[in-house]
Design a protein around this nucleic acid. Structure first.
Lengths: 327, 327
DNA sequence: GGAAAGACCGCACACGTTTTCCGTCGTTGA
DNA sequence: TCAACGACGGAAAACGTGTGCGGTCTTTCC
């Protein structure tokens, strides 16, 4: 109850002004002489004054806090996004809090009530899949990242998955590969279907057999390798780094050399997979930090009263490594 | 500025009482008739009232928020710990916010100032390494998790690494293995040194050669396998799942079968490694959620005015899989 | 010299909740 | 019948900051 912290009145007393004046001096508002402003600033510095966020929130209505609401319990996607968000927001003195719903709608509702009750300034919603998701119903600025809102009136920032997949194929074609197979995850995953579609379109006649749908595991990568080898491909484009790593392992076991005999590409640029693979994987980086930065920027503008609408697609980046380039 | 939310006075008006009385009714304090309490509760339910956290914080001094301060940018350790912390705290209506310092002391200081300014009720400090760390200097309850504070007067909860490592050796000995090698991470990492020490002590004469220190990578696991095979071990105990996976890969390449010829154990039970390995790894689960739960419990007690002191070591759990058991 | 204008700062209230203190009413016991 | 007491609920202050409004003092112009 008794907080020993230094308060605005203490600063004001030291500077010989009233609390209201001190507040104006520190927030650069009102009309005060430069001399008074400096005097208050010095007093604040001397006392190590940090304004109490509780009083400020109550008074101004702003809490200088935004929430990152995620369904990605692993943190695989939400952590990089959060870094991007923080980069942008911390510059504006805003704090970021991470809320993991664990993909539980009830938990999500609980979090939302709590966030509204504590008066966060805005919310970034993200997930571990790219499927568009239902909008959240709160009287606050919201930006969707990675997974767009189904409502086009909302602001969403997503990854241009099709372009990313196309980039791997273009890369392979440029290396002179003419028989490209595609192994990816479940057909009902938007990211798998969208990437496969882009692969087929870009590869054209260089596509070798139909895309193989399975799951995102190394095991499936190994299994699918046996199937796909019947088509004698000279390149295998994979829907994820895990699949690609499985493919590389199986190819090595069978005596095929990567990339000389068969080039392999991954997707996601997940370091723990892409770098640990033998050889390291050429992969598509989702630029999740950029995604977070962009989402945060949009959110700031919405908070400032200039909301955006619609879906913004951000480019990916192809990272070339030895699985396509040779040593 | 104008928040449309329903306030305590609205609830009070509907129930025909004053705001103060409504507050008491909802928080089960003061002395009121049961009938009045119920009436206020019904009114609150009708209006969908959620108390504004800003006003509550300012008035009571409690924010019902605790922070998890971590240096683990990957989330590998902090996410499971956070789940445990949330489990305990959400039951008490407390919110948890994750703050990633990115191992930057300046950023840590900034976060601490911010956390004190917003008046969090307490802080759980954690990291990605098990090295004891300097205490943080804040006038708030603090509990250290995973990495203990160097000051024994603080409350810390850590993993009993030695017992975990010993458990793998006991397991191997029980399986009849008599020549056990140990491959682990950098000697200057406390977790590597501590586990190696426990391995040596527990294995006794069954220890085969000196522990091999390197880094935590699969690559090192593969390299070290070649070295260690000169000693003709019938089991290899590894300091991490990544190393163990590298060991398994190399053994398979060389025609040794796991676990028939040589049993292999990992450490950390990191699903993405332990399950993807061929064969899946017997490993030591750190029970990080338990760690988080325990830390949160201690923190709650400290907030309630009953602080604990000293280091609490929590047991690990050996997860047996095919790398030691056969199919 | 007086008045108007402008620069500057203090006063007081607002924000929403919690909590202490006190008043009122009804009941009980002498 | 009166006093004492307990049960109940209201009034108001407190938490710390932000800000609109008005007052004072100086300056300037007629």
């Amino acid at each position: 109850m008794n907080r020993p912290g230094v308060r605005m009145v203490d600063v004001a007393a030291l500077a010989g002004v009233s609390a209201g004046t001190a507040s104006k001096a520190l927030s650069n508002t009102g009309q005060l002489s430069q001399e008074t402003r400096d005097r208050v600033r010095r007093a604040a510095a001397t006392l190590g004054f940090t304004p109490d966020a509780r009083g400020r929130a109550l008074s101004s209505g702003r809490t200088y806090t935004v929430a990152l609401l995620t369904t990605d319990s692993s943190g695989r996607f939400s952590i990089p996004i959060m870094r991007g968000v923080e980069d942008v927001l911390s510059a504006g003195e805003l704090a970021t809090v991470l809320c993991d719903t664990r993909d539980d709608p009830l938990r999500e509702q609980t979090y939302l009530r709590s966030l509204v009750a504590r008066g966060v300034d805005g919310i970034v919603v993200t997930g571990r899949r790219t499927e568009p998701r239902a909008r959240i119903d709160v009287p606050l600025p919201v930006v969707y990242a990675l997974a767009a809102s189904t409502d086009p009136a909302d602001a969403s920032v997503i990854v241009d998955d099709a372009a990313g997949a196309a980039a791997t194929i273009t890369h392979l074609l440029r290396l002179g590969r003419t028989r490209i197979a595609h192994i990816t995850g479940p057909a009902h995953h938007r990211s798998a279907a969208e990437r496969a579609q882009a692969v087929a379109t870009t590869a054209g006649t260089a596509l070798c057999g139909e895309p193989l749908y399975g799951d995102w595991s190394e095991r499936w990568g190994r299994q699918a390798t046996d199937l796909v080898l019947r088509q004698h491909p000279d390149a295998i484009s994979c829907g994820s780094d895990q699949i690609a790593r499985g493919v590389c392992d199986r190819l090595r076991e069978l005596g095929h050399s990567v990339p000389e005999d068969i080039a392999v590409t991954g997707y996601d640029n997940w370091p723990v997979m892409a770098l640990a693979s033998r050889p390291p994987l050429t992969s598509v980086d989702l630029r999740l930090e950029d995604l977070g930065r962009r989402a945060a920027t949009l959110l700031l503008e919405a908070i400032a009263g200039k909301p955006h609408h619609g879906v913004l697609e951000l480019p990916t980046q192809l990272i070339t490594r030895e699985s396509t380039l040779g040593t």
